[in-house]
Computed example of a mutant assay.
Amino acid sequence: MTDPRELRVSDAEREHVVSLLNKAVGRGMITLDEFTARTDTALAAVTRSDLNGVLVDLPGMINNELAHARTELKNTMGTTVRKGNWVVPRELVIRNTLGSTNLDFTAADVPPVVDIDLDVSLGSVKLLLPPGSSVNIDAVEITAGELKDKVHNAVGRPHFQLKGAVRGGSVVIKRKR
């Protein structure tokens, strides 16, 4: 049986640890030089043992994105707005019927990858993405509706992965310059 510390880690796990290190700098737990060295180690980590080594002396690190890994926004004939400083979950479900959903990610705490599942009927969704971000809309099905992607790039962070259905509605994706 393999020791769990010797299991290989994924890119998502490495990025998670880097986000924890970023929070540690913000809390004054480590210096910028320590952050740089630990980030380099985390990004080069192959096993859990390698990755855990950069966090072992940082007590109480909690990643809010894990506590809020999935959020569902439901809207029927109303308006849902998220802007300013808000925590974006890794998975966001938008259920919108005859309403509007406006999400501004520019000042939000955004994980490296956000999966957005659309279920839109006769409503509108507007997404304002941060500079340098990317989006993939290949898994969105449009029926008698409209999808305007003004981002048009395949590489960047954070990355937004959209899927789902838009029936008689619209989705507009823009990036803040």
Rank of each mutant, 00 (worst) to 15 (best):
M1R: 03
M1H: 02
D3S: 11
D3E: 10
L7D: 13
R8L: 09
D11F: 00
E13M: 14
R14F: 03
V18G: 06
A24D: 06
V25C: 07
V25L: 08
G26S: 08
G26I: 12
R27C: 05
R27Q: 14
G28D: 05
I30P: 10
F35K: 15
F35V: 15
T36L: 15
R38V: 01
L43A: 00
L43E: 06
A44Y: 00
A45M: 01
V46F: 11
T47L: 08
S49Y: 13
V54D: 01
L55K: 04
V56P: 03
V56Q: 04
V56I: 12
L58Q: 02
P59N: 01
G60S: 04
M61D: 04
M61Y: 07
N64S: 09
N64H: 03
N64I: 10
N64E: 11
T71Q: 11
E72S: 07
L73F: 09
K74S: 07
N75L: 02
G78Q: 10
V81L: 05
K83T: 15
N85S: 15
N85R: 15
V87A: 09
V88N: 02
V88S: 00
R90H: 13
E91D: 10
S100C: 03
S100Y: 04
T101F: 02
N102F: 07
A107L: 10
V114A: 10
I116G: 01
L118C: 01
L118V: 10
D119I: 01
V120T: 11
V120Y: 04
L127T: 10
P130M: 13
S133H: 09
S133R: 08
S133K: 07
S134T: 12
S134F: 00
S134D: 08
V135D: 07
V135E: 05
A139G: 06
A139K: 15
V140C: 02
V140Y: 04
T143A: 02
A144Q: 13
L147W: 13
K148I: 02
K150V: 09
K150Y: 13
H152M: 11
N153D: 14
N153L: 07
G156I: 06
P158L: 11
F160L: 02
L162W: 02
K163W: 14
G164E: 10
G168Q: 08
S170D: 01
V171A: 01
I173Q: 03
R175S: 14
R177L: 12
R177Q: 13
